[in-house]
Amino acid sequence: MHELPQTLANGLTLGALYGLIAIGYTMVYGIVQLINFAHGEIYMIGGFGALTIYIWLPSGTSLVFAIPLMIIGGVIASVGVATAAERFAYRPLRTAPRLAPLITAIGLSIALQQIVWGFYPDAKKARSFPEFQGDAFKITDNLQLQRADVFLLLAAPLCMLMLGVFVSKSRAGRAMQATSQDPDTAKLMGVNTDRIIVMAFAIGAAFAAIAAVSYGLKYGQINYEMGFIAGLKAFTAAVLGGIGNIYGAMLGGVVLGVAEALSITYIQDIPGMDKLGGGAWANVWAFVLLIVVLLVRPQGLLGERVADRA
């Protein structure tokens, strides 16, 4: 059991990462009932935006100065792409049958991935990302945290806090809640729903960019494919927590991350499953978890019973 604290900590950081991306799915879904498949790619573009800024900075710039600028660069890139996608691809299809925007999202996802692959310098293989210098923090004998993990564990709750305050206290946030409850009535009450929808896309994209920077700092590299699996996991997290609920997204992310970390460490100890553990099978177990959750609690951990909107 001596590896349990470290496993939980790994799970928590991974979960915070998933949670940050999942916010984007859940906000967009909560307002327009659209699974934005391209969100994984928006996350990836956030990473490349940040990397671009880092390359522009004079070499040897301390990360303390570089990181805020990189986050700004990543946010600009991802928010720009997300709002453009909303404006030119999704908005014309808002009254279309549900399959149409889903397919558009898949097309967008493939196109964005290919644009980065084809046109970003040297993006055909993984590009290295700056890493924190210095040793890991040793908390106990069994537990140490990398500096990037600490960054992530600080950034995620901070972002959640800001989002929570924004949604519940600000005028725009309350308009957002109203739109998600009933877009037509919200419109009648004078809410500019188009603007609210753009805002939902933008906030989700900004969070994804922050997640991408954290990912880069943690693993020291980013690549054009990183959005696909991350997007899939984040969507799982959003469903797990109850899609449409922003706190649920973070909770779902953490549950998923911890479950994944536990599966990597402990599945192989179960008799008869000694070859089904380890990193190679982590994605498979995350998927099994998704199926189980859909089976026993389809509305998610914090979700309310969602009635079909006819």
Partner: peptide, 19 residues
């Protein structure tokens, strides 16, 4: 090298203009 890119764009345009 670019066929997947064209493919993605084609999907988006198809949904928009001739679903």
């Amino acid at each position: 090298d670019y066929q997947l890119l064209f493919f993605g764009i084609a999907l988006v345009l198809l949904m928009r203009f001739r679903p």
